[in-house]
Amino acid sequence: MDDISEASDAQLVTMIGRYDEVALAEAYRRHGGAVFGLARRVLNSAVEAEDVTQEVFLRLWNQPDRFDPTRGSLRSFLLAQSHARAVDAIRSLNARRNREVKDASKTARSGYDMQHEAWDIALADQVTRALEELPDEERQVIQLAYFEGHTYVKVAEILQQPEGTVKSRIRSGMRRMRAVLNEAGIQGVET
C-alpha cells in the first residue's frame, strides 16, 4: 500500500502490530481529535486530556491486539479507552480537587448546549437528533453518567432517584439512541 491514508483502520492496527510508527501516526491523525475531544470534555482540562490521549495511543501501540475489528470500529474502541481513562482520572481525589466545580443538576439542564460543540461532521446531525429525541429524564442520566463521569449509583444520589430507575433510564436511553442512529445508517450500532 503506497498511500497509508488509504489503509483501513483494521489494516492500520495490523501495521501497528508490526511496529509501524507511521501507521500509529495515521491512526492518531484520524482519531486523535476525537480521543482528545472526549477526554477534554469529560475532564474539563486540556492538560489532563493530553495525558489521556497519550495513554490511549501508547496503549494502542503496545497492545494493538486488544482491538478486535469484528467487535466494532477503531474510533469507538479508542473513545471507550479515552472515556474510561478520563473517568478514572475524574473519580480520583486529585482530579476532583483540581477540577472546576460544577453543579450537576445545572450541567444536566444545560446539557443540550454541549451538543453544539464540534461534533464529528459525519455523525453530528444524527447524534444530535438522537439526543434530542430522548425524554429529558433519559438524556439527563446519560449526560451525568457519560460526560460527568458518575456511576449510576452516584447519578441516583444526585437526582435523588432509586438506583433501579436510573439503571433503567440509562438502558432505555441508550437503546433509543441506538435505534435512531441505526435508522440513520450509522455503522456499528445495529442491534
Binding site: G72, S73, L79, A80, E117, A118, Q126, V127, M177
Partner: peptide, 9 residues
Amino acid sequence: AGALGNSVD
C-alpha cells in the same frame, strides 16, 4: 457511546 462522545477537538 462512541457516537455520543464523538466530538472532535
